[in-house]
């Protein structure tokens, strides 16, 4: 299969206006991916499917990922004047990365037996801008998987023929696979809780009954 750079270049050529970014993957698996902008997704994916050298006719796996807002604090060295003398001091610099939701598609070619080409789509944010184009019109196999992502992550796919909850019941309002979801507090706690579970378990501990000291007297009497 041709290199990802070439695929990117050819796709950008075939679909004018499309912006595609290569997301590197540092792990030994070495499966880098293509980040496609939401406005041209369908055209790019159609190109990937129909191009004679690629023929990515099989969309194997569709995944939702939740990336929370992150703040990264880095120390930067700045030069300032202190008492008329120029000194280098370290200052913390706080950077905010807004969170987003992401869908990842793994495309393969059954006709030419190669792959995967991994493509990703990102939403604008995690609250209102959670719209993404659906790939179901191109690949039927995305139908249920996108419904699942809608159910568990709350991404709204436009162009999806039947976007309903699939795993949870219809009355359910949360999106439980989001990283900030808290499930209902409905279980008894383990005998040896720790960390987070311990904090939540404490709320369920009954207070010891108030002792009035009578049992000490009884113990005294019997020596």
């Amino acid at each position: 299969m041709e290199s990802l750079e070439r695929i990117k270049a050819r796709a950008e050529e075939a679909v004018p206006g499309a912006t595609i970014k290569i997301i590197p993957n540092a792990s030994p698996a070495n499966q880098p991916s293509l980040l496609i902008d939401s406005d041209h997704t369908l055209a790019v994916v159609q190109f990937l499917r129909n191009d004679a050298a690629l023929r990515l006719d099989f969309c194997s796996n569709v995944t939702g990922v939740d990336w929370l807002d992150r703040t990264v604090t880095t120390k930067v060295k700045v030069k300032t004047l202190i008492d008329g003398e120029e000194k280098e001091i370290e200052q913390p610099q706080v950077e905010n990365f807004p969170g987003y939701l992401e869908t990842v598609y793994h495309l393969y070619s059954i006709a030419l037996k190669h792959g995967p080409v991994v493509i990703r789509l990102r939403t604008a944010d995690r609250a209102d801008g959670v719209h993404l184009p659906s790939l179901t019109p191109v690949y039927r196999s995305a139908e249920f998987q996108e419904r699942e992502i809608f159910d568990l992550y709350g991404i709204r796919f436009h162009g999806h023929p039947d976007l309903r909850r699939i795993l949870m019941w219809d009355e359910f309002v949360d999106h439980p696979m989001r990283k900030d979801y808290r499930e209902p507090d409905d279980y008894e706690y383990e005998p040896t809780p720790h960390d987070e579970v311990l904090e939540r378990a404490k709320e369920h501990y009954a207070a010891r009954p108030q002792l009035d000291g009578a049992e000490n007297l009884a113990a005294d009497e019997h020596g």
Binding site: D170, E171, F172, V173, D174, P184, D186
Partner: peptide, 10 residues
């Protein structure tokens, strides 16, 4: 079926 959980939970 409730909004977050079964009603009642037990």
């Amino acid at each position: 079926f409730g909004e977050h959980d079964l009603q009642p939970p037990a």
